[in-house]
């Protein structure tokens, strides 16, 4: 049985841990609000972009001259998984879930006989992937220096990925991130970003179908050429924003749980402490009384 002093120390340390988790929860809540409004502000752009690309893509029949980003390289051998995770831990299973989704995808692809390589964005994905696929990490992008994801960062990542695509390092690219549904629910998602999925194009015939006689300046192919790289950038940007919001949401929940657990633990330890203290007093009393009787 632990001594009174040890119990007291233990209670003290749990209390200070609770203070830290409580503070982290509050910080996460404040940051979540900002990240969430950022994510919401970014949505109109990506939605419009998606509908424009979809309506354009449905117009252009993929041929030998159409942009590679739309038609693909014609092969389906090497797959790139862009793994976007947070930079920090202490956020419950947030990072683990994204990595798990990416690994599941990788296993599926490998089962089909494809080669899988990884492009890592954010710090937390690297160790796991490095353990399971030590030779498959193509590159990584360090996001730890930035406070909130900026479009410029997404563009850099997209440019790098597109360069690799153009030089034939891979044929298909997927993006793994966590879709921010709510504070309590972040959904790990793996989306195909290169080439543009034909399924997505036919599923959302937004502006295209309603207005058949659209005039294009310059022609469709030229617009697509300008648009597709932007589309990749915007998808990555959206993933970064969703991740940021999801991360803080997850951290808030995790820290809330931790605070509550610490509270429970303090209660239990206090009860134990009080009992022991009482027992010590009782023993002492018994000793004194029996001593007095002996006289």
């Amino acid at each position: 049985m632990a001594s009174l002093k040890a119990l007291k120390l233990r209670i003290g340390s749990v209390k200070s841990t609770q203070k830290i988790t409580k503070a982290m929860k509050m910080v996460a809540a404040a940051k979540l609000r900002r990240a969430q409004s950022n994510a919401e502000a970014g949505r109109p752009y990506s939605e419009r972009m998606a509908s424009v690309v979809a309506s354009l893509a449905s117009r252009v029949t993929p041929g030998p001259h159409s942009p590679k980003l739309l038609a693909g390289t014609g092969k389906d051998e090497t797959h790139l998984i862009v793994l976007a995770t947070g930079d920090r831990g202490l956020a419950g299973a947030f990072n683990t879930n994204i990595v798990r989704a990416a690994r599941k995808k990788a296993q599926e692809l490998e089962a089909d006989g494809k080669k899988v390589i990884f492009y890592i964005v954010g710090r937390k994905g690297r160790p796991v992937i490095a353990r399971f696929y030590p030779k498959a990490i193509a590159s990584q992008y360090d996001t730890s220096a930035m406070k909130a994801p900026a479009y410029a960062n997404a563009q850099e990542i997209a440019d790098d990925i597109i360069d690799r695509f153009e030089s034939g390092q891979f044929d298909v690219a997927h993006l793994a991130y966590a879709n921010f549904r709510s504070t309590l629910l972040q959904e790990p998602t793996v989306d195909q970003i290169i080439p543009v999925k034909p399924g997505a194009a036919s599923a959302t015939p937004a502006g295209g179908a309603a207005s058949p006689a659209v005039e294009y300046e310059p022609d469709e192919e030229e617009i697509l050429k300008a648009l597709l790289p932007k589309n990749v950038a915007i998808q990555i940007y959206r993933a970064l924003l969703e991740n940021a919001a999801g991360f803080y949401g997850s951290q808030m929940t995790a820290m809330d749980n931790a605070t509550r657990n610490a509270g429970d633990m303090i209660n239990k330890l206090s009860i134990k402490y009080n009992r022991q203290r009482q027992a010590a007093i009782t023993t002492e009393l018994v000793e004194i009384i029996s001593g007095a009787e002996a006289l």
Binding site: L56, S211, A213, V214, E215, E217, P218, I223, A226, L227
Partner: peptide
Amino acid sequence: GEFGAMAGHAPVMTV
């Protein structure tokens, strides 16, 4: 070239 768009403009898409 620049163009002015008013209500009822024909559908256009341009860079």
